[in-house]
Design a protein around this nucleic acid. Sequence first.
DNA 1: TATTGTTATACTCTATAACTATA
DNA 2: TATAGTTATAGAGTATAACAATA
Lengths: 151, 151
Amino acid sequence: MMDVMWEDGPIPGELGVFPGYLLALLGEKSRRRFHRALEPEGLHPRHFGVMTMVAAQPGLSQQELHEKTAIDPSSMVAVIDELEALGLAERRPHPDDRRVRTIFLTARGEEKLERVRAIAAQLQREFFQPLSAEERRTLHGLLRKLASATS
Amino acid sequence: MMDVMWEDGPIPGELGVFPGYLLALLGEKSRRRFHRALEPEGLHPRHFGVMTMVAAQPGLSQQELHEKTAIDPSSMVAVIDELEALGLAERRPHPDDRRVRTIFLTARGEEKLERVRAIAAQLQREFFQPLSAEERRTLHGLLRKLASATS
DNA sequence: TATTGTTATACTCTATAACTATA
DNA sequence: TATAGTTATAGAGTATAACAATA
């Protein structure tokens, strides 16, 4: 028990001694705020994630998007259905394999993504404001290291 | 957009530029692992949270537990029902207010909590192993600071 | 009239399995 | 036989509102 209390000292009986708990707590808070911030745009965080991936690599298949985003294939169908209904993305047939649907953003999708990125950026500033600029850099670096290590 | 990329440099199109995304990703991963680790014990992370709180302050009311754990009152009923069914906790009447139920751990509950704490501690070691001891301390400190600031 | 605990209910999210059309 | 996408469904988790007992 004691050897996980890496911080100043133990706070008996409180869950903050477990960094994994703090991670889950803050992650949930961050997720919810983003969810709320996107509501006026009619989007969910998942839409943003998929749109970001598609913007980076236009023409990804739904299968590839599934692998990159950890959204399971059946949910991916729904997400892309919704993006298509909103006119933000479109499915196009794969030239060589008629089973595969490749995904692209529409012009409206590109514009929308820029607006939503600005919202996301603003939210980051607010959320991490309690930390100094250097602390934010340090935290971000450690999170990236951990995220890339814990495959 | 650029001003939230606190890390080395932008990774175009990837979500890792948003620290809030990394927080949500890692928090979810941590939560799931803990969930899986508790399964053999027949408990959910919520049970652990409530038991920890009750161990620290025996006799808390369900209302107070709701406020401290962010588990809503109706779910709290279910959690405590389950702990009682497992013989790990018990409701006792409040001496002055017959509406209030005060919660205590049983002897079995205390023992169980110790075992589960050891499981939680082991999980922390595994999860944060990719970081050095100093990095872990730094991360834990920053998470605590952020968690206590973002009320 | 307000509060504690409770119940019932609905809603979101996610996971699973089965189906189709292609390969 | 295997794969991409789709559909339907069930399950977990969570939130909401109404209710009874008590203050």
